[in-house]
Nucleic acid binder design. Structure first.
Length: 473
RNA sequence: GGUCUAUUGGUCAAGUGGUUAAGACGUCACCCUCUCAAGGUGGAAUCACGGGUUCAACUCCCGUAUAGACUACCA
């Protein structure tokens, strides 16, 4: 069997939304499942949209996610170059070839004429299709215009009748009438190829066996197929992916503030967890497994089980998965994950590393993403404590001041360790007779101001002896 | 407007003619517990609608509704 080759072909716009990443993931998994090759190709044929460093951004994201590119701009390969902007002569050559074969033609129609056509079409409430005006220009006319440097595009001469169909590996049989397809532009007037054209040429030349992409191309794939037919090339298999949308069914978009991979990453989500979540959007394993390493994904992935309906991005489930990953991290790893957020928010200059590690340790199980630490630990960085109404009410009960007095005496002379604090609490229980809620809550409220928080001995330890004694008096 | 596609609980989803319609997130209750998490147990909640086909339809067919995509010298 032919070895599978898939490709991720983003345009370098400097932004990687979750749908893009998921496409890359599935492309990678489909290839790796069969020991195939995963290719990165940069589709930079729109000069207006190029963003500096966007390619670095894309490759950084992929490697952060453990998606390894076999062939691409950074690592090269025998089918390069992998920037479309460096393949211009290739597209020109193939476009000319099509012209010579009589399957494409020069079109000199300008914006104005096209605009008129469009207006007329919208007036008549019909779909606008280029009318093929230049399709039958005589050789002399063409030569003359070319000699005069009249701007031109190259359009494909599409068949006027018949049906073009294919079998998508996810969506099944798709058929579209050729009459609905216009004579598509292959080469733009700036000499650059259109996406459609470059895409087909490169997929063919790079030997792509499975084209995996978003389903916005589902209904335009016949246009691509017609190009393969014109060249007499065999077309690849198609796997169209359902979209990832936000609540309400709208597309995820940067402009509307929807989270991109980098946004999540910067909030302390783990790339592994993001990938894990994304894998479960539009795909499901044969069993009920939820947590996957990349290796397990590769082994278990099966494109036959890709869903064909759109999935709504749900940050709650992502948080759960991310939390599962955080629980499995070593303390050093959580420390690394969370430290930047702490440093940026709180003054840690007079805290020991041990103190910070202890702080992080007791909150490891509470975290669903890194940035969450900031809010969770705020109680240890406040000079003033504010006692809630509920807590004030609780403190009105009998015997509480006595309990607090006993506890204060208990800790006055101990060495400040979690264990000793715990013993002091137990001694207080013995001596005062208070137990359960009436034992713990008063101390908790008096020292932290809150009725919630981590285990009391640990909380007190982190607060420090001086602060605790001060708040008790 | 035309074309293509989709529709199982709030969300992700399993399911391919006969099932008590899995599982997960979320939610609620209970257990654990000083509290909050974590963990455990349990509950509520789903086949868009209408016609067919069939002994039998979530599953097949046709409509309708709703949603999305495409309809660029953007990718």
């Amino acid at each position: 069997m032919e070895k599978i080759r898939t490709r991720f072909a983003p345009s370098p716009t400097g932004y990687m939304h979750l749908g893009n990443l998921r496409s890359a993931l599935f492309e990678y998994l489909i290839a790796k499942k069969e020991n195939g090759t995963f290719i990165l190709r940069i589709e930079d044929t729109d000069q207006k949209r190029i963003v500096d460093d966007a390619v670095k951004f894309i490759t950084d994201t992929l490697s952060l996610c453990d998606i390894h590119v076999d062939e691409g701009p950074m690592q090269g390969g025998e089918y390069g170059p992998y920037y479309q902007s460096e393949r211009l002569d290739i597209y020109q050559k193939y476009a000319k070839q099509l012209v010579d074969m009589g399957k494409a033609y020069y079109c000199f129609c300008d914006e104005e004429r096209l605009e008129e056509l469009r207006e007329e079409a919208s007036l008549r409430k019909v779909a606008f299709l280029y009318d093929g005006h230049c399709r039958n220009l005589s050789k002399e006319e063409i030569l003359e215009k070319l000699a005069n440097h009249t701007p031109y595009v190259i359009r494909q001469a599409m068949p006027k009748d018949g049906i073009t169909s294919y079998d998508d590996l996810v969506y099944g049989h798709i058929a579209v009438e050729n009459a609905l397809l216009e004579d598509q532009i292959l080469i733009k007037s700036d000499g650059y190829p259109t996406y459609n054209f470059a895409n087909v040429i490169d997929d063919h030349l790079m030997n792509i066996t499975h084209v995996v992409r978003g389903n916005e191309y589902l209904s335009s794939t016949p246009k691509y197929l017609l190009l393969y037919q014109a060249f007499n090339w065999t077309s690849p298999e198609y796997i169209h992916l359902p979209h990832i949308v936000k609540e309400g069914g709208k597309k995820l978009s940067k402009r509307e503030g929807d989270a991109s991979f980098m946004d999540l990453y910067n909030d302390g989500y783990l790339p592994n967890a993001i990938i894990n979540y994304l894998a479960l959007l539009g795909w499901s394993p044969i069993n009920n497994q939820e947590i996957f390493t990349m290796q397990e994904l590769i082994e278990n992935f099966d494109y036959h089980r890709i869903n064909n309906s759109p999935a709504i991005y749900d940050v709650k489930k992502l948080q759960w998965i991310n939390g599962q990953y955080i629980k499995k991290l070593s303390l050093d790893e959580v420390y690394k994950l969370v430290m930047p957020f702490l440093e940026n928010t709180y003054d840690l200059s007079n805290k020991s590393k041990e103190w910070v590690r202890e702080l992080i340790r007791i909150y490891q199980n509470h975290l669903s993403y890194g940035r969450e630490i900031v809010e969770l630990v705020s109680l240890f960085f406040q000079d003033e404590i504010i006692i809630s109404d509920e807590a004030v009410e609780f403190m009105k009960q009998d015997g509480i001041s006595h309990t607090l007095e006993v506890f204060k005496n208990q800790i006055e002379n101990i060495t400040w360790t979690v264990e000793n604090i715990n013993q002091a609490i137990l001694n207080t229980k013995e001596e005062s007779g208070a137990k359960g809620k009436l034992l713990y809550m008063p101390i908790r409220i008096k020292t932290t101001g809150q009725m919630h928080g981590p285990e009391l001995p640990e909380a007190l330890f982190l607060l420090g002896k001086d602060a605790v004694l001060k708040r008790l008096s």
